[in-house]
Amino acid sequence: MTTPDQLLQALQDEIEQNTYGKHPAELYEPIRYIMSLSGKRLRPLMTLMAAALYTDEWRKALKPAQAVEVFHNFTLMHDDIMDCAPLRRGQPTVHEKWNANIAILSGDVMLVRAYDLLLEVDGDRLKRVIKRFNETAAAVCEGQQLDMNFETRWDVTEAEYLNMIRLKTSVLLGFALELGGIVAGADEEATTLLYEAGVSMGIGFQLKDDLLDVYGDPAKFGKQVGGDIIANKKTFLLIEALERAEDSAKTELDKWVSEKEFDKEEKVKAVTAIYDSLKIRTFTEQKITEHFDKGFDCLERLQAEPARKEPLLSFVHQLVEREN
Rank of each mutant, 00 (worst) to 15 (best):
L45F: 11
L45H: 12
M46C: 14
T47I: 02
L48A: 00
M49V: 05
A52H: 13
L53V: 04
Y54E: 03
D56W: 02
K60F: 09
A65Y: 02
V68M: 04
L76S: 01
D80Q: 00
M82V: 12
D83K: 10
C84H: 15
C84V: 15
G90K: 11
A100M: 14
A100G: 14
A103Y: 01
L105G: 08
S106G: 09
S106H: 09
D108V: 11
L111I: 15
L111Y: 15
A114Q: 11
E120L: 02
D124P: 10
R125E: 08
R125V: 06
R125D: 07
R128N: 10
V129C: 03
I130W: 03
I130S: 01
K131G: 08
K131I: 12
F133I: 05
F133T: 09
E135K: 07
A137P: 00
A137N: 08
A137C: 09
A138T: 14
V140A: 02
G143A: 04
Q144P: 08
Q145I: 15
Q145D: 14
D147A: 11
D147M: 12
M148P: 06
D155F: 14
A159N: 14
Y161K: 08
L162R: 09
M164G: 08
K168I: 02
S170D: 10
L173D: 08
L173W: 06
G174H: 04
F175M: 00
